[in-house]
Each structure stands twice: as structure tokens, then as C-alpha cells.
Design a protein around this nucleic acid. Structure first.
Lengths: 334, 334
DNA sequence: TTGAAAGCGCTAACAG
DNA sequence: CTGTTAGCGCTTTCAA
């Protein structure tokens, strides 16, 4: 803690009276057993005295690996995604990786710009939650350069992924709703281009078909509160006799609840409602929503683990699509 | 797009039939006006054909600047912080900086570990939202190495900062409450070691004093929903005659509302409530909370701008503490 | 058990 | 107008 300017491995070596090679070795715990303990001690002392910290950038250039992974997601201020990012970060941290979070702000264009940046940044991998269908040329470009990509919360053709079992979860939820005696059900789906949304719809349709029922209506929203509100309004005004509305995520379900209230309907008395995701703000919403828990944090962890696994096994492990279990959450909304 | 392995500036030079210097120059737009257009064209062509992307790590090592700034915050899944981080990121992105988000998970120890990491990462600056009172030795270590630190949403002795005018906002809010006819007010404060919480309390006390009133009670929470719930419960049970509860943030206010409900009290009929922050989930809470808007996104932007300003003006601009205006949000909770 | 030296990919004097 | 060259700070053969 004496020098003013940058302290490099050079000064440490000088101070310890050894070569920089030796310093490097103790830094990386290399030949450390074949080293005279006294030498090691001297180096350690010098490091401490000078408060030396190895410059990561130089290590990266030399080692030709950055130990950086990126999380590319649509919106970091969405608690679902940030929880997922946290999951990635926790595993990454333990494994000595730094995490770069890139927020595409729901813009395909920005997403694609980030893909370019990540290429230049030489990240080793990216946990990717695409806005919609990602630009496969960009993706291929990264892959060709040896950057592995793991898709989270979605499926993309040809890429490994980690997602929840949306189909099963949706089936189960629908089944529960039917058990409760509802049967004239309308569905507010998510965007067609998002696999997650499609799966939930498929699960819903399957459960209905298995009960010999027809949906009263299927409308498409975009996962926002507003689109839930608007679509629910439409449903409740046009389709008389609807006794329940299922939304493909919680945010839309909350919108639907408010729409119902604004039309003077009470949930669940007049109409049942369900969501999907189990986001934490449900805690604050009345009535308590019946929904399906998606393990966002765990999903992030698994995505990172998947990357780690591929990294050590050599690039081409057989393509893997991991599916996490969901859990039905019983509320008071149906 | 022909080569398989890494393509470096060397191959580009070879392909274009020029020296690597020339390639570097067109890359950085340097002597570009003094360059024969044809040469430039050849280089550009080679870059395109080879799909060459400069390796950031090498640039950083050579330039001795990383163009990376970090945001060190307590919890990325808290929408307030992630919004702030987004603000930082937006300005950083425009300025050509990459953003590293570090989540200290409310742990002073992890925060301190991150400070070490950021040192090694050679980030150029950090936007810092400390968990409590930060470890000043670590902080000094970064400063000594030329890494500038801007504190956000808080004040720390000796560091530049950007925060909201919590005192004024709190004063104004209290004043409004008094105007509405409330007067027997209890206050749920935030942690004593957080300047933001202290300022809000001070503003509250000042407004009360100016109205010749005494608080019915002042309890301390930790900014969580649960602590709001518990403290409100205590207040409502012990201090009969309280006609309003002010909480130092929205989350605690929501907890207070629920506590009131659970005790059979209606808001605002039986007891008024106020929050602070204007977090987005208030949209989903009944009754609509009266609160104070804190411009989180803008705060992030300003913090990054402050860093940029200091970066160009040379390190030692006089220390600056920027204060952003707040805005009263009228709800139905009082 | 330790050191000398090459070089990761790039930029910036300094020369022509 | 363009090229030669010397590193940035570190790791890693290869030799001793």
C-alpha cells in the first residue's frame, strides 16, 4: 500500500526478489507444491505490502477466456426476469464468472445490437431470453465464434434451453378450474411468437378438450396489465355467460380482475380468474390469485449450470432442453 | 465470413494489403481524412468479408481504459433499484460504456467482495447504492486507484451523490396530511443508518413541529412489507386515537394497510396512510396510496452523467451532491 | 525449484 | 498517406 501508481506483477516480483513467473505461479496456485515455502512467503508478503491486484483485462487477453457470461433479457425491471438474472448470477459468481446484464427493452433491434456487442466482448456464453423470434443469423454468428447460448424461459429451434413445463402447468390449472365447477371459460393468451405463451394455450386447450368443452373465446394479449384489462373488458361485454377468464400470465390476470370490478362484477362470485407465473406482487393484490408458480430463480441457476456443463464437456454435448416443474398455487380468485 | 478460426486485425491487414496500423486507423476513425479513399475502401471491404470484430479485451489492455462502469446495488429484483440501473445503463450505452450490475443481496460482506472484484475488473466508475454504511477502506482503495464512485439514492460522507429531496418531499407530504385534517400521526421510519430514511423522518418531524404537533409514535422498520405490517399492528393496538400512519416507503405502507384491514379498520375512513417512492406496483394496490414520487430512472441517468462529467473534467471536480425533485402523488388512502 | 522470453490483439508514437 | 515498432500486464512453454 505504498506505491501511488498502478502496481503490476513486475513491482511485486522486484520487491520479492523473484521473477514475474514466480509471482504468476503463486497467483494461480500452479507449481506451488514444488516451490520453496520461503519463496512463496516472500511473494505473498510483497503482494500484501503493495496491495497488488492482478489486472483482469490482461489475464483475459493472455488466457483467451474472459470468464464473463451475459444475460440478455427484455426488461430488467420486470421482477420475473430480474429474479432469473439473479439465479444466473449466483451460480456464475460461485464459478468465478462475472455477469453482464443486457436489457433489450423489448426491442428486437436493441437485442440484435447487444448480440453484436457480446461478440466483441468475447463473453463465453449468453443466457438468452429473446423478445420474440431471435435473429438467427446473429445467433449463428456467436455460435460460430464459440460462444454458447442457452435460452431461458423459452424454446428456440436448435438451441439448448431451460424452461418451465408450461403445458403441464396450464393443463393442471385448467383442470382445477373445471373441478371447481367452472366451464364457460375464456382465455387471454400471450403473443403467438413466444413459445411459453403457445405452450400455455396448448395446455389449456388440451384440458378443455379432455373435458369435452369448448373455450368461449381465445383472445391474444401481450403480457401487459393493460392488454389484460382491455381483453377482459371485451370478453365480459361480448360473451355473456362466461363464468371464468384465464390469463396467460399474472399481469394480464390482474388487469382482468380490475376490468371485472370496473364492470361491477365480483371475483370469484360473478366470474373466476386465474393467472400464471406467481410473481411476487400478487402478495399485494386482492383477491388472492390462483396461479401457477414458475421457478424463475431456479431457472436462472439451471441455465447457468447448463452452460457450465457444456463448457467443461466440450462444446457439443447433445442439445439439451431442460424442463422445470411448475406448482399450482391456490388463491381465492376461483 | 470465410475463415473459421479467430480473425484478428492481422488477417484483415493481409487481406486488404495494408499494415495493421492502417486497419486500426479506419477502425478508430483516426487519420481517416488523410487516407486515400481507396485504401479505406479496401480495408472496409476486408473487414466485411472476414466479418471482423475488434477484440474489446485487447483494446482495453492497450488503451488502459475499460469503458465499463458498474452498478453496485442491494437487490436487482427490487423494481426501484432495477429502474435506477436501467437509467444508468441507458446513458452508459449512449456513451459507449458497458454496464456491470452487481447485486450485493443486502449483504455488507458481499458488497465488500464486489468492491474488490470491481477493482480487479478495472471498471472506470461505480454507481453505488450501499446497503448501509459502506466500508470506507474499500472505497478509498478504489478511489486511490482512480476509480470514481457516485453514490445514488443515498449520501455518503466524502463521496459525490445523486438523491431525491427526501426531506422536502416528506415535509410536503406531511403538510398535505395535516391539511386533510389528520393530526394524530404515527410514523414508521426506515433503518437509521440509511440517509434516505433519516431525511424522510426529519422532513416529517419538521412539518409536525411547524404545526405545533407531536408525533404519536415513531417506530423503526427495515423497508420491507413485513416490517410495515408488524409495526402498523403495534401502533394500531397500542396507540388508540392514531388517525394516520405514515410509512417511510411504499412497501411498508402496503403492509400497514393490510395490518389495518386485518384489525377491521378501513383506510382512509378509520385511519389514513401514506407511503413514499411511488413504486409501480401501487397500480395494483387498493386503496390507491398517497405517496411521493422518486424519479428512480432519472436518478440513474443523472448518476451516470455525473460520472461522465467528472471523467472528462479530470478527476477532481469539486464534490457534488445532486438533489432531484420529488412529486406528491394524490391517492385515496388519506 | 526458478527464470527468460514469446506473445495474446490491439494502439500510438515515430519514421518515412 | 502509410508502415515499423514497442509495449499494455499477464501466462506459459522451454531451459536451466
Amino acid at each position: 500500500m505504498e506505491e501511488k501508481g498502478k502496481v503490476t506483477i513486475r513491482e511485486v516480483a522486484k520487491r520479492a526478489g523473484v521473477s514475474i513467473t514466480t509471482v504468476s505461479r503463486v497467483l494461480n496456485g500452479h507449481d506451488i507444491e514444488h516451490m520453496r515455502p520461503e519463496t512463496k512467503a516472500r511473494v505473498l508478503a510483497a503482494i500484501a505490502e503493495l496491495d497488488y491486484v492482478p489486472v483482469r483485462v490482461a489475464q483475459r487477453l493472455r488466457r483467451q477466456k474472459t470468464q464473463v457470461i451475459a444475460v440478455l433479457l427484455p426488461d430488467i425491471s420486470n421482477p420475473f426476469f430480474s429474479l432469473l438474472a439473479r439465479g444466473v448470477g449466483s451460480v456464475a459468481f460461485e464459478a468465478g464468472y462475472s455477469t453482464l446484464i443486457c436489457d433489450s427493452n423489448h426491442s428486437v433491434e436493441k437485442e440484435s445490437r447487444y448480440l453484436d456487442i457480446l461478440l466483441a466482448e468475447q463473453v463465453e456464453g449468453v443466457v438468452f431470453i429473446p423478445v420474440g423470434q431471435p435473429m438467427m443469423d446473429k445467433v449463428d454468428r456467436l455460435l460460430r465464434r464459440g460462444i454458447s447460448i442457452v435460452v431461458a424461459d423459452r424454446r428456440v429451434n436448435g438451441l439448448p434451453s431451460v424452461e418451465a413445463d408450461n403445458k403441464a402447468g396450464s393443463y393442471q390449472l385448467t383442470e382445477y378450474l373445471l373441478h371447481r365447477g367452472y366451464g364457460r371459460i375464456a382465455y387471454i393468451a400471450g403473443p403467438r411468437e413466444v413459445s411459453t405463451a403457445r405452450d400455455r394455450l396448448v395446455g389449456f386447450r388440451a384440458a378443455m378438450a379432455d373435458a369435452n368443452l369448448e373455450p368461449m373465446a381465445v383472445l391474444y394479449g401481450n403480457f401487459t396489465y393493460e392488454s389484460g384489462y382491455e381483453n377482459a373488458r371485451t370478453i365480459l361485454q361480448k360473451h355473456v355467460g362466461v363464468d371464468a377468464i384465464m390469463a396467460a400470465n399474472d399481469l394480464m390476470a390482474i388487469g382482468a380482475i380490475r376490468a371485472g370490478e370496473d364492470l361491477g362484477l365480483s371475483v370469484p362470485m360473478d366470474v373466476g380468474m386465474t393467472g400464471f407465473d406467481h410473481i411476487s406482487l400478487l402478495e399485494f393484490v386482492e383477491p388472492q390469485l390462483t396461479t401457477v408458480h414458475i421457478p424463475a430463480y431456479q431457472m436462472g441457476q439451471e441455465a447457468m449450470k447448463l452452460f457450465l456443463k457444456r463448457a467443461e464437456k466440450g462444446a457439443s454435448v447433445e442439445q439439451e432442453n431442460q424442463v422445470l416443474e411448475t406448482k399450482l398455487i391456490y388463491g381465492k380468485s376461483c
